[in-house]
Design a protein around this nucleic acid. Structure first.
Lengths: 206, 206
DNA sequence: TAATTGTTCAACCGTTTAGTTAAAACATAT
DNA sequence: ATATGTTTTAACTAAACGGTTGAACAATTA
């Protein structure tokens, strides 16, 4: 299945991730991607195929990487609380650092995942599975109360994605009326993950 | 400023909300909007103006309505816990019922709100303001612990928007492998709001 | 070295798109 | 009856877009 990709193809997919994240599928123009990747458009079609195929490759790369990071970190942690911490921290860091998970994810949700390839669906399933397992473990051990893992999942994912993607809007808001500036609204990655972790643990602890 | 709109203009904006929600700004075609609204394209341009203006009107309508609903419900409630309950329930119901807040909201976040008109920014500020006030009130009364209201806000908004927009993906997942079906993943509006409320209150109670 | 294969390029093609135009039909009120 | 505002029809434009072509270039093999 996964035949290895040439360096040119990798470069194109990386740049395409940026542009799809910024503009969405319909907003992203093939010419713009080729230009920013510094390859001829025909090269793009030679290496990848059509626009839809390129987008699938981007989804696979972006979602796959982030979710693998998270699942790996969760496996590496011991008790359920540490696993939750690993989940939140890794997701927060990995989805921000030089990759474009959040906007792509949100856009996919907005369109009902109509174009999500099955591989991406499996990735997402893995993510939910990892958290559900952890929470169930915590419930079994008596340290978490009985909660619906799906909603905890939505809460974690939602707050991380929204906090990240909301940043430019908060900045613009402050630029418009500086008197509302509040340092608590501009926490760094690690601090924001800490805030979310604190709220989530309080929400689910027995 | 807000000169009142003709019935035709209202109809166009309503249909446009649907299509922008389904397809995003770039995916939505002016011809398709005119067709579904059963008006001639020339009428659309006569009544509204260009595509960007139409989109602004949609944003104003969709965000404005939902957020007004929420703020109104919060004002009508008494103690902070009731206000939070009103916030969550109203947002959950209003953003789903025959209006298209969630996808439009998520897409705006995904693109960093580049095209958000100032009016929409103010709406969003109102929403955050209403919650922040409520939480501060609860903290002052000693029933909530000291939490960062912004993150509570992201958590509520995030879980509601994600749960809603995630539904088709969950359905598709279950269709692919029916053995994973779980009724807890397909709660009705009111029940899901209840789940979120429960988690949020546990997270912030003193 | 000559032939073969894989890769890149500039130019091009057909379609779709947002937006316009002008004339005519329809509606409403003066 | 006339004037004003609104909608339709249907054709049109100019630009942008996804995708293709054929030739040039580079790497590999014989």
């Amino acid at each position: 299945m996964g035949r290895e990709k040439s360096a040119t193809a990798e470069k194109i997919i990386k740049i395409a991730s940026e542009i799809f994240a910024e503009q969405g599928y319909n907003g992203a123009k093939v010419d713009a991607i080729a230009k920013r990747a510094k390859v001829n458009k025909a090269t793009l079609y030679y290496q990848i195929g059509d626009k839809a195929t390129l987008y699938s490759a981007v989804l696979d790369r972006v979602l796959g990487q982030t979710i693998n990071d998270v699942c790996h970190a969760v496996k590496g942690a011991g008790d359920p609380e540490s696993k939750i911490k690993a989940f939140i921290h890794t997701l927060s860091v990995s989805s921000q650092a030089a990759n474009f998970t959040a906007p792509i994810f949100l856009r996919e949700l907005a369109s009902g995942g109509k174009t999500l390839p099955d591989s991406a669906l499996q990735h997402m399933g893995k993510l939910l599975g990892a958290l559900t397992e952890t929470i169930q473990q915590g419930i079994d051990e008596g340290i978490f109360r009985k909660v619906n893992p799906l909603f905890v999942h939505m809460m974690i994912l939602g707050s991380i994605l929204l906090y990240q993607t909301n940043e430019p809007i908060r900045r613009r808001n402050v630029a418009k009326n500086p008197e509302i500036y509040n340092p608590d609204h501009f926490l760094k990655n690690e601090e924001s993950a800490e805030q979310i972790l604190d709220l989530i643990l309080s929400a689910i602890r027995a």
